[in-house]
């Protein structure tokens, strides 16, 4: 078995573990608010890929505009921070249990880390920058 195949299998296991943690943090207390964290972390790589396409729409033209890429990075920073601070907010105002907060943060971090690792290993061919 090649290295790439085992890496894919490992990453899919980690992704499943992350989703398991997030869904468990919702289902154990029958409170589905932490599911927002999973959505946020899944959405987090999208602005960078869209904005790098936008900036590269006119290839080799002298007025290359890096503002799109910077805007994508800004949005990514916003989304990642949202995913980290939303459970803390919900736990602070006692809408969810503290254990659910930590479980959803850990699960979201695993999901985002999986996406990052996948993009770093296999995304170099498609020029996507996550």
């Amino acid at each position: 078995m090649s290295l790439a195949t085992s890496a894919v299998i490992l990453l899919s296991f980690v992704l499943a573990l992350g989703f398991l943690l997030v869904i468990l943090s919702c289902a154990l207390w029958a409170n589905w608010l932490p599911l927002l964290v999973a959505f946020t972390f899944v959405l987090a790589p999208i602005p960078n890929s869209i904005c790098s396409r936008c900036a590269r729409a006119d290839d080799l033209s002298p007025e290359y505009n890096s503002a799109y890429i910077d805007f994508g990075r800004f949005l990514t920073g916003m989304l990642v921070t949202t995913g980290l601070s939303l459970p803390l907010l919900l736990a602070h105002s006692e809408l969810i249990q503290p254990a659910a907060c930590w479980m959803s943060v850990a699960g979201g971090g695993l999901v985002y880390g999986t996406i990052l690792a996948y993009g770093g290993w296999f995304g170099s061919g498609s020029e996507d920058e996550f």
């Binding site: 990075r73 800004f74 920073g77 919900l90």
Partner: peptide, 24 residues
């Protein structure tokens, strides 16, 4: 740029946190 976006969202969440706390 990443840091600035994170700080922007974090400051919004600080206000949203106080607002949620006040509403509950």
């Amino acid at each position: 740029t990443y840091l600035s976006g994170g700080l922007f969202a974090l400051s919004f969440f600080l206000l949203l946190d106080a607002s949620t706390l006040s509403s509950h």
